[in-house]
Amino acid sequence: MANFSLLSISSSLLMIFCGLWSFISYHKHLLNSLLSLEFMMLGIFWLLSLQMSNVGSEVYFGLFFLTLTVCEGALGLALLVLIVRSHGNDYFKSFNILEC
């Protein structure tokens, strides 16, 4: 049982670091950045649910975290649609700071 727990924790940390690596290295498009942020959030949720299962049957905090993650994803997709409609693409280099 200890090997499974260690494997689960290490795989969730691997998910977080892979999401962070892809966020840093593939920052050309906004959609790539949003997907890597969601991948990191899934890794954090998995680690959180593993740790909460060891403490007790506290599921409300995990559901609250998952709800916030879903709201963050919906807000990111709404911003992506708004940016694609206004600029025509989702390249970060095409955004101008001085533009309203």
Score class of each variant (00 low, 15 high):
residue 9 I to N: 02
residue 83 I to L: 15
residue 11 S to R: 03
residue 70 V to R: 06
residue 47 L to K: 03
residue 15 M to V: 14
residue 16 I to G: 02
residue 84 V to W: 13
residue 46 W to C: 04
residue 72 E to P: 00
residue 23 F to K: 09
residue 21 W to S: 06
residue 32 N to Y: 14
residue 1 M to E: 04
residue 26 Y to G: 01
residue 66 L to K: 00
residue 8 S to Y: 09
residue 5 S to L: 10
residue 63 L to V: 04
residue 78 A to T: 08
residue 32 N to E: 08
residue 52 M to A: 10
residue 23 F to E: 10
residue 38 E to Q: 09
residue 33 S to T: 11
residue 27 H to A: 15
residue 46 W to Q: 10
residue 26 Y to H: 11
residue 7 L to E: 05
residue 44 I to H: 02
residue 91 Y to T: 06
residue 37 L to E: 11
residue 95 F to V: 06
residue 88 G to M: 11
residue 73 G to L: 13
residue 8 S to E: 10
residue 78 A to F: 14
residue 93 K to D: 14
residue 67 T to N: 10
residue 92 F to I: 06
residue 78 A to K: 11
residue 51 Q to E: 11
residue 3 N to I: 09
residue 1 M to P: 00
residue 48 L to I: 07
residue 81 V to S: 08
residue 57 S to I: 04
residue 89 N to L: 01
residue 78 A to C: 07
residue 59 V to E: 05
residue 97 I to L: 13
residue 6 L to Q: 08
residue 15 M to W: 08
residue 67 T to E: 05
residue 72 E to R: 06
residue 35 L to Q: 10
residue 9 I to W: 09
residue 43 G to T: 05
residue 73 G to N: 04
residue 64 F to H: 04
residue 65 F to S: 10
residue 7 L to K: 02
residue 76 G to L: 13
residue 54 N to G: 03
residue 58 E to R: 09
residue 50 L to Q: 12
residue 29 H to W: 09
residue 58 E to H: 14
residue 30 L to N: 11
residue 7 L to G: 02
residue 75 L to G: 09
residue 58 E to K: 05
residue 97 I to V: 12
residue 76 G to F: 15
residue 21 W to R: 04
residue 92 F to H: 10
residue 32 N to I: 09
residue 18 C to R: 01
residue 49 S to L: 08
residue 46 W to P: 00
residue 41 M to P: 01
residue 28 K to E: 12
residue 20 L to D: 07
residue 73 G to K: 00
residue 78 A to Y: 15
residue 27 H to S: 15
residue 5 S to F: 08
residue 90 D to H: 00
residue 61 F to N: 01
residue 65 F to P: 02
residue 77 L to Y: 15
residue 38 E to A: 10
residue 16 I to Q: 04
residue 89 N to I: 00
residue 94 S to G: 01
residue 42 L to P: 00
residue 21 W to T: 10
residue 21 W to G: 03
residue 29 H to A: 02
residue 47 L to R: 01
residue 67 T to S: 15
residue 59 V to Q: 03
residue 79 L to S: 05
residue 15 M to R: 05
residue 74 A to P: 00
residue 81 V to W: 09
residue 9 I to A: 04
residue 27 H to I: 02
residue 45 F to Q: 02
residue 50 L to D: 15
residue 43 G to V: 04
residue 75 L to C: 06
residue 42 L to W: 07
residue 32 N to R: 13
residue 45 F to G: 01
residue 33 S to E: 05
residue 32 N to C: 13
residue 9 I to S: 02
residue 60 Y to M: 03
residue 98 L to Y: 07
residue 59 V to G: 07
